[in-house]
Amino acid sequence: MRGLVAVIKRELVSYFITPVAYVFIVIFLAMNGVFTFNIGGFYERGLADLEPFFSFHPWMYLFLIPAISMRLWAEERRVGTVELLLTLPISTWSAALGKYLAAWIFAGIALALTVPVWITVNWLGEPDNGVILASYVGSFLMAGAFLAIGACVSAATKSQVIAFVVSVVICFLFLAAGLPAVTDFFSGWAPDIVIDTVTSFSFLAHFDAITKGVIDVRDLVFFASLAGAALAANVLIIEQRKVA
């Protein structure tokens, strides 16, 4: 437990002692602004809600979350500090979980800094704050799932660039699983059950359900189990690939 806390602290601090954290937060907030007000048509819609704000989150996360997760293990493996970390008296699980939680907390901090948008919409009208809160929860959970995938990919390589690119591709597959681009590939030859299974992995579908204001246990379980599976794979990869 003390090892887990120490790892979280170290990782979190390392985001902020390098420019990574500040660059990331500034870009995240700026993009949020652009998407919400310019592209999303926040004012033109005349509705007091944050739908234009949240609807772009999955697509922003697609590129920004792998940028947070790419260095988690790849950098440790490249520099060799993985040997230092894993010869400390902590389990590989605590190390992996600590790194993951630190990255997730960091994503949470970035997300929390968007709260002024929430305040703005309350000042302008009377939005359904329950829906907005649920959307924040959904957005945070989705970020967690993306991060777990990114951390797992990062563990498999020494190169941050490879970690980034592969993470984006895998995250895109999960994101777009329900879109025609992916389902068309299966329709016509695969049985319906395969198409349904693939569609059920769609981040978009689960995220949309939550942003409607209904936090369904199934959606929570989806994101949690996906993150759990990715973390388990992360631990296995680290155990297997210490040598290279």
């Binding site: 003390r2 120490a6 790892v7 602290k9 170290r10 390098t18 060799g80 230092l84 008296p89």
Partner: peptide, 23 residues
């Protein structure tokens, strides 16, 4: 470890605090 790999962005003080906590 061989080559003494270390977290380059940390200070010795920060590193030792981390190690002390983990240990």
């Amino acid at each position: 470890p061989e080559g003494a790999p270390l977290y380059g962005d940390m200070t010795p003080e920060g590193l030792y605090k981390f190690i002390a906590q983990v240990r």
